[in-house]
Design a protein around this nucleic acid. Structure first.
Length: 306
DNA sequence: AGTTCAACCTGAAAGC
DNA sequence: TGCTTTCAGGTTGAAC
């Protein structure tokens, strides 16, 4: 699934492709895609009609589109201005919140382009231009209209991500060392640090020369800083490359794959040589998925914790 | 209260 | 060839 860099690529595409436009048609083809919208698919569609998309935001792997106030659909630009003026009030406004899950895509495509096999929701716009389509093979992702524009209340539990301006490094270091779990489990816990998934967790741990089973309480402050810096470096580089695409399940809003796969050091490289020490990269089962490490650069701790 | 794990899905690839 | 098993970028809710 898309992790922070991939979701940020999509957010930028939405900013270019749908901000400032008026939604004038919503079709939900699979109710599971809007299961987080408690009032159901019909209410989901009705709540969006006539509203202007004002902003495209992201925290970790969640993204959301700010919506003009209901009933302010008359003129697109006017609505944008009204929403911007009201954005100062805490908790005000509504948003279209989305998560891509393991296989979700948000595509901005011409209305006459053929429907994708796993098309779940279609959004048409008043200008008759490109549509927004939510496509999701496995339906782990989803969309909902929620309250809150700055940070929707429903994702208040998600921690800031390491590329966010408000990420508090010292708070993260303290919170990490207070945990009683394995280091990779902590990295994947979106309430501690968000945006990191299985790929970038393994890449950051390799770059910081730390093993995933290190008990968090034994991680020094310096090691925690090193790990965070590694995560920032690898995700920034991945973003510059357009993200990581193993297959066609992750693509940008334009349908373009990312190129970072070729820069991965350990993830998906079982048996290949570590670029630092030439030892063969090892793959192990971990939390019903896989972890990739260099057995030499990242020795297993004597006291390991999964 | 903090931590862990099964469950939610579809499809491609590997195994037999 | 075809059937079965395994695996895939994630999150939640409930159990411990």
């Amino acid at each position: 699934m898309p992790e922070l860099p991939e979701v940020e690529v999509v957010r930028r595409g939405l900013e270019r492709g749908v901000v400032g436009r008026v939604i004038d048609g919503v079709e939900v083809y699979h109710p599971r895609a809007v299961r987080r919208h408690a009032a159901g698919p019909d209410d989901f569609a009705a709540a969006l009609l006539g509203r202007t998309v004002t902003t495209a935001s992201r925290r970790g792997k969640y993204l959301w589109l700010g919506l003009s106030p209901q009933g302010a659909e008359a003129a697109g630009l006017e609505a944008v201005g009204a929403a911007a003026a009201g954005a100062g009030a805490a908790g005000a406004g509504e948003s279209l919140l989305g998560h891509l899950g393991m296989s979700g895509q948000l595509l901005v495509v011409p209305p006459d382009s053929p429907d994708q096999v796993h098309l779940r929701v279609r959004f048409r716009f008043g200008d008759g231009g490109r549509e927004l389509r939510f496509v999701d093979q496995r339906t782990f992702g989803g969309l909902a209209v929620v309250s809150g524009a700055d940070l929707p209340a429903s994702i208040a539990h998600i921690a800031p991500d390491p590329l966010a301006a408000d990420f508090d490094v010292e708070h993260f270091v303290d919170a990490l060392r207070r945990r009683r779990t394995g280091l990779k489990r902590a990295l994947l816990d979106q309430t501690l640090i968000s945006g990191v998934g299985n790929i970038y967790a393994d890449e950051a741990l390799w770059a910081a020369r730390l093993h995933y089973a290190r008990p968090t309480e034994t991680v020094s402050r310096a090691e925690a800083h090193r790990l965070l810096e590694a995560a920032r470096t690898v995700m920034t580089a991945a973003l510059a490359a357009g993200g990581t695409s193993f297959d066609r399940l992750y693509v940008s809003t334009e349908g373009v794959s990312g190129l970072f796969e070729r820069s991965l050091e350990v993830y998906g490289r079982e048996g290949e040589q570590c670029s630092r020490c030439a030892a063969p990269i090892r793959r192990e089962a971990f939390m019903n998925r896989s972890s990739y490490t260099c057995p030499v650069c990242q020795p297993r701790p004597r006291r390991a914790r999964w």
